[in-house]
Design a protein around this nucleic acid. Sequence first.
DNA 1: TTGTGTATATTCACTGGTTAGTATACATAC
DNA 2: GTATGTATACTAACCAGTGAATATACACAA
Lengths: 198, 198
Amino acid sequence: MPRPSEPTRARIVQAASALFYNEGIRRVSVDEVAAKAGLTKRTLYYHFKSKDDLVAAYLAARDQPNLALFRTWFAEAEGGLSAKVEAIFKNLARSARHPKWKGCGFLRTSAELANMPGHPAIRIGAAHKKKFEDWLRATFAEHGVADPLKLARQILLLLDGSFAVVLLHRDASYMETASEAARTLIETALAKPGRKRG
Amino acid sequence: MPRPSEPTRARIVQAASALFYNEGIRRVSVDEVAAKAGLTKRTLYYHFKSKDDLVAAYLAARDQPNLALFRTWFAEAEGGLSAKVEAIFKNLARSARHPKWKGCGFLRTSAELANMPGHPAIRIGAAHKKKFEDWLRATFAEHGVADPLKLARQILLLLDGSFAVVLLHRDASYMETASEAARTLIETALAKPGRKRG
DNA sequence: TTGTGTATATTCACTGGTTAGTATACATAC
DNA sequence: GTATGTATACTAACCAGTGAATATACACAA
């Protein structure tokens, strides 16, 4: 069945995502991914030129859905700016209590491949975090924050710190601590003079 | 030369540390560690019962020196509480600009071995971070912070967030952003009523 | 409608290399 | 002569990537 190429590729990425996220990049062999996708390794190598390519596709597939989720949590939360940001941490805490949760796939991949600085997957991870940071910066700017970039980076640090710490201790309550810290930083930033939102 | 057993073991841990930190746990083979230590794999297995055991020893050896470094940076800094905490971030930023820097070995190991929750190395990493948190908590309590544990965890989140973000973007300036956030959180905590230090 | 060429998609079987861990023997010190 | 420590040589499994062959769908010609 030559024609339906796209579903095959998507199925491989889906299988790779589950395995790479759950077990780690180097722990998972290309054979395992192919088996999980229900095809042979040779077929996988028809769609992806190397394992590194597959790893990059795994993270690329997570980029937009992840960002959309954060934006949804923010948009659907009641209250002011800090309450909306806190909603992200609260929802993340709920996710983190799920037994299959294993931290942030982007950060874990960058940690595992730290010896390969230019790796395509790391570039995709960096771009993903930059997009999140930029969305935060724009949002803060709309809300009249004086230095929106600085605040966006501070929140990002708390967020990624949460991922790391909660993964290490398996204690999601750190996300609520991060949430409180975020509120303090946002309120402090709002107290300083800045442009009002339009 | 049977007698000098301790130097041999220490040499193995030293070789393992350099390789595991620079290349990652699963990337480095036991043969490589043995070769770097200048002995055979069989000798290594005389001193360590498994690779997991060796990984745990790698992190255990980093525990005390790492904590001592943080305490030194804090103690030798001029100024008040927030200035002393900021000194940790500033010194870390300097370390992070070194080309061989590759983040926090404890966090990277926990990320790489996230599929093995009870792994001895992860337990050692968790204990290490708890010790740091506890030292911060005690220090903040001495300085009259009303909720020293909460502030300690907030600072820890910024610190570990810095490790993750700086590793991903290879941009140490995030550590200075974290430093500013830490100052805001500390000043906010100090502004609330609490016991004075003795 | 039927035959045929071609790009697409898939499989089997394989290579060369690596890996954690071990069986066995040997050496040195006390 | 026995504990301790080191080395040689091995196993059995795994792993990223490839060579060669094959199957299907579709375009186009007869």
